[in-house]
């Protein structure tokens, strides 16, 4: 298992090289540059040239990329070209806010989704199942920024129940958590429904019922434990996606998270900051998905056996 984890983490290297290159090229291709906001009317052409030299804008994008990667391989994410602060520190201060938002959304989404998915599977083909399907379709097809804006209009503008942006109180969490949790619950519900449907006709459930296991326990212990893998995968992916910063929701609610940090960096053409955020986010994503894979082994003894079979083979080869 350790070997597997190390290999997965080594894959990060090519992934990070690729994403950072893409960011650099895109930022270069985008109109405007970092110095646009620094130029004022009193500057002469020479001053502007000077500024360009300072930010290496007179050189090719690959020069800047190479310089950046050199720093990266020394473990240095660089510092923001605008504020001069360390990229890692900026990310670190913003990340807890994103983490709070995504964990709360996930808890809300999962608490709705799993019971609802089980309910739909148990009533497959009935009106209840159709209603659930309608709910998930709405959740999946409604853009979260739209739901976010609707909530803003209703609860913040019309009845002034919740603040429109981040103010540090519990109230400001309500709307972004609902907006984020809703679309998450839709996809987890779908996954739960189909995973449960896959196991409901299994013989071992009949064995459990014949033992006198109460129906709720058949569902929770025997069905759900066999249906966990696709559900956990979906949850892991959802968590990874929101942790990466639900940029849209953070923008709608002016949430001080990493998603908005990234948008700000891109708007200001702060390539170092944008690239640093993307690299940290990609790393987080890969690590989270790896954790999901490791969780599999705890859920299913057959997967656990595969890992230990690999170990046994290795031991035999060494002997």
């Amino acid at each position: 298992m350790l070997r597997y984890a190390v290999i997965r983490l080594l894959w990060l290297i090519p992934i990070l090289i690729c994403v950072s290159l893409i960011i650099f090229v895109l930022m270069d291709a985008a109109p405007g540059s970092i110095i646009d906001s620094m130029i004022n009317e009193e500057m002469t052409q020479e001053d502007i040239e000077e500024l360009k030299r300072e930010y290496d804008l007179d050189k090719s994008v690959f020069y800047r990329y190479g310089k950046y990667m050199l720093g990266l391989f020394r473990g240095n994410l660089g510092s923001s070209e605008i504020s001069g602060l360390s990229v890692f520190d900026m990310y670190k201060t913003r990340f807890p806010k994103t983490l709070e938002l995504s964990l709360l959304s996930l808890v809300l989404g999962t608490l709705i989704a799993i019971p609802m998915g089980i309910f739909a599977a148990k009533h497959a083909g009935t009106i209840w199942d159709n209603l659930t399907t309608a709910f998930t379709l709405i959740g999946l097809s409604m853009p979260s920024f739209w739901l976010g804006l609707l909530l803003l209009i209703w609860f913040s503008h019309s009845i002034k129940l919740f603040p429109a942006g981040y103010d540090g109180t519990w109230k400001c969490y309500v709307m972004p958590v609902i907006a984020g949790g809703f679309s998450m619950s839709a996809s987890i519900t779908r996954q739960t429904r189909s995973a449960i449907l896959d196991v409901v006709r299994q013989d071992y459930l009949r064995t459990a019922r014949a033992k006198g296991v109460p129906e709720w326990r058949v569902t929770v212990k025997h069905e759900l434990r066999n249906a966990w893998i696709p559900i956990v995968t979906q949850i892991g992916m959802m968590l990874a996606m929101t942790m990466a910063g639900s940029a849209v929701i953070e923008a709608v609610y002016s949430w001080p998270g990493v998603g908005r940090l990234m948008i700000e960096a891109i708007n200001q053409r702060d390539t170092t900051l944008a690239c640093g955020c993307v690299i940290l986010t990609a790393t987080l994503y890969v690590v989270l998905l790896l954790l999901v894979d490791i969780v599999y082994a705890f859920i299913d003894p057959r997967i656990r056996a595969q890992y230990s079979a690999g170990r046994r083979k290795k031991r035999r080869a060494e002997a």
């Binding site: 009949r206 025997h222 066999n226």
Partner: peptide, 11 residues
């Protein structure tokens, strides 16, 4: 039950 391969819960 008839089929021992599928009548036990695998997890």
């Amino acid at each position: 039950f008839q089929d021992p391969m599928t009548s036990l819960n695998p997890v």
